[in-house]
């Protein structure tokens, strides 16, 4: 359903250019949840922004359901890490969730109903009239997820969605994502720098190298569903997978260069 071929992106030109993506190939099947993990600053966000059509990659192709991505695709939603900046503080929670539904050609009442339903699904029933900044960080991110759910995207992109919340909330949100995707059979591409998380939520983990990012390796996650924060994490298979991913993430980091000639 998502097909990324030899994606490259370079910021700037000349000697100061920064090669963020160095030729990435990535496939995501219908209904799959793929975690993309890599060292921080490796270009994960550049990958996501390219797929979302927010930046135009220097080279390569992105296809969603056989359609080339040029501009922002119509049936795609993004959950950003920084919920406080991605939700609009001048709108209520209900308006935030309902806003993108205008594009779906829904009437006012239908938009409202869809927003209420999505909010209930993420565990915030009746929060429509509140403002985002009246909610805790975890709840705000739930609103952002509800906004994406209500939009009914064929592909949901999540950019470090739980990077800015505390550990307990993070676990709750991970379970929330697993629940809603079970419910809606959504295709999700989740970007994270957390190795544990990538294994816990993913059907498959794709590991990127440091920039310019390439795919360092892929691992299938054959852990049983439903996953459980305690039980799943103590399975030997989980521990093993986590170690494998960790090895991939670290092994590809270049060793600190040391040359005798550099001392000169």
């Amino acid at each position: 359903m998502l097909d990324v071929v030899n994606l490259r992106h370079t910021y700037g030109q000349g000697p100061s250019a920064h090669h963020a993506l160095g030729g990435i190939d990535l496939k995501v099947a219908e209904g799959e949840l793929v975690s993309v993990v890599g060292p921080s600053g490796c270009g994960k966000s550049t990958l996501l922004r390219s797929i979302a059509g927010l930046i135009e990659p220097t080279d390569g192709h992105i296809r969603i359901r056989d359609g080339h991505v040029t501009g922002t695709p119509g049936d795609l939603a993004v959950v950003f890490q920084d919920y406080s900046r991605s939700l609009f503080p001048w709108m209520t929670v209900g308006e935030n969730v309902a806003l993108p539904l205008r594009r779906r050609g829904m009437g006012r009442a239908a938009r409202r109903a869809a927003a209420a339903e999505a909010l209930a699904e993420v565990g915030l029933p009746g929060a429509e009239a509140k403002y985002p900044w009246e909610l805790s960080g975890g709840m705000q991110q739930r609103v952002a997820i509800a906004r994406a759910l209500a939009y009914r995207p064929t592909l949901l992109l999540m950019d470090e969605p739980f990077g800015s919340v505390d550990a307990q909330t993070r676990e709750d949100l991970e379970d929330l994502v697993l629940k809603v995707r079970e419910l809606h059979r959504m295709t999700i591409l989740l970007i994270t720098h957390d190795i544990d998380e990538s294994v816990y939520v993913g059907d498959r983990v794709v590991v990127l190298t440091k920039s310019p990012a390439r795919v360092a390796g892929e691992l299938s996650v054959d852990l049983p569903f439903p996953r459980d924060q305690i039980a799943t994490r103590e399975l030997p298979a989980f521990v093993h997978l986590r170690a494998e991913v960790g090895r991939l993430v670290r092994a590809k980091e270049p060793l600190p260069p040391f040359h005798a000639s550099q001392q000169a």
């Binding site: 059509g53 119509g74 993004v78 950003f80 991605s86 609009f88 806003l99 993108p100 594009r103």
Partner: peptide, 8 residues
């Protein structure tokens, strides 16, 4: 970005 992603 959010506005663009949701096609406003």
């Amino acid at each position: 970005d959010t506005a663009e992603v949701f096609g406003m």
